[in-house]
Design a protein around this nucleic acid. Structure first.
Lengths: 230, 230
DNA sequence: GTATAACAAATCATATACAATCCAAAGGCG
DNA sequence: CGCCTTTGGATTGTATATGATTTGTTATAC
């Protein structure tokens, strides 16, 4: 045995992949940040080939963009990208919530309520970062039981894209966060009451759509370049 | 100039990517087919590195599966995979049709009708392959105007996955194809009449859902292992 | 006859080396 | 002074070579 068994269990390309990915998710590599193969390889003390492979995988997932002979950079969302992603997410999340609804237990609803309460707290103490985190957790609880893994995967992918815009609810539309918390309660109530599946779907969809509408409206009122990068 | 300008414009990894992909789409590489790096590299007269990269990209798109130190093979859909993909597609296509509807011109509708008529012909002459092709074309016409590129991309991705099961409508559920043609006409009529967007969405969704239901029912009636690979 | 262990072949994984390409800044020319 | 060309440096793209892992096979013991 030349190396520890635990060490060789993860391939180097896997290592590079998760290293880059976590840096992007933690906001250390901000959108537009240039990913230089050689530099990353040297940092991780591996060769460029697995790094390159990792980056191509991240590209396929939409987290980075890649240009031939030029290199890779962390993906940026422009305004239309933001709008389309949000729209797609509204559709996907609506469906995912609808499909999960029959399987959501009372315990899960209680947990979701607790999370939502903590979100309300975040509004008091103004903690946008934690708020976004909890928001994700809230919807995770709702989707957990979705029997369609394929759909869930697409939702997560969409979240990753939006992750580029950290704490978006707070930064873009003042006041929207309060509505959001209220709408969460509405969705929970619908599920609890065993509402029609279409009704649940449309409510969940509208929740996301309204954030988007609020953003668009806010954009229009303050006629200035988009806060998201062009 | 050492090489022709057109030759070097496409990278070798790109070349490998489209080569493998087209083989999969044409059904030459059937689901389960093992993709051996060295063999493909020798066939294309390039080294294994770009081939490897191409395969990882295809993996990220869901067309092939990959296992460390074992290799890659063309992705297979099991029964649950088929069901979830169809379900997801029903949602995505429903939304895409709904979003496109306001932008669909009379010319486009006429074109779609022509395609649908040819589909009916295919039923007479029993040409499943062409039927599937036309089906894709029909829906492409409907989606063409969808303002949400992100959503369209997901639809195409779903189609690619289902491509694993060629001519599925015909092979699985006898008689379903006839219904399908009729439903197409129904969707066109709805769009033409300027129906409510939700109505259009649900109709388009149901079109896909019914194929799935027909499949499930057919499965249940003929109690035998799934025709899709396990 | 079956099961286990050692071995051999095939294949994947990655390091290294070099070629191809792009970008930017410096220099020449109108 | 501004625009075009050139050139150097940096970075990506790919080939080759070698190490690591898996899989299949054969021989031997029970």
């Amino acid at each position: 045995m030349t190396s520890l068994p635990g060490t060789s269990s993860r391939s180097k390309s896997e290592q590079a992949y998760s290293w880059i990915r976590s840096r992007i998710e933690e906001g250390i590599f901000v959108p537009g940040y240039r990913l230089v193969l050689g530099a990353i390889a040297k940092e991780l003390d591996i060769s460029v080939v697995p790094v390159r492979e990792a980056i191509r995988r991240l590209e396929a997932e939409g987290l980075v963009t890649f240009e031939r002979n030029v290199g890779a950079q962390v993906a940026m969302l422009n305004e239309t990208g933001y709008v389309t992603t949000m729209q797609t997410l509204s559709i996907l999340e609506g469906a995912a919530t609808m499909l999960s609804a029959p399987f959501i237990t009372e315990t899960a609803i209680a947990a979701a309520r607790a999370v939502n309460a903590e979100m309300a707290d975040c509004l008091e103490h103004f903690d946008p970062h934690r708020f976004t985190e909890l928001n994700r957790e809230f919807h995770s609880i709702l989707f957990e039981q979705c029997p369609n893994d394929n759909l869930l995967d697409l939702v997560h992918r969409g979240w990753n894209s939006l992750n580029m815009l950290r704490d978006s609810t707070f930064s873009f539309v003042p006041g929207r966060a309060h509505q959001s918390v209220a709408e969460h309660e509405g969705i929970l109530a619908l599920i609890e009451s065993g509402a029609d599946s279409l009704e649940i779907e449309l409510a969940a969809r509208a929740h996301r759509t309204r954030t988007l509408d609020a953003f668009t409206e806010y954009q229009a009122r303050h006629k200035r370049p988009s806060p998201v990068q062009p």
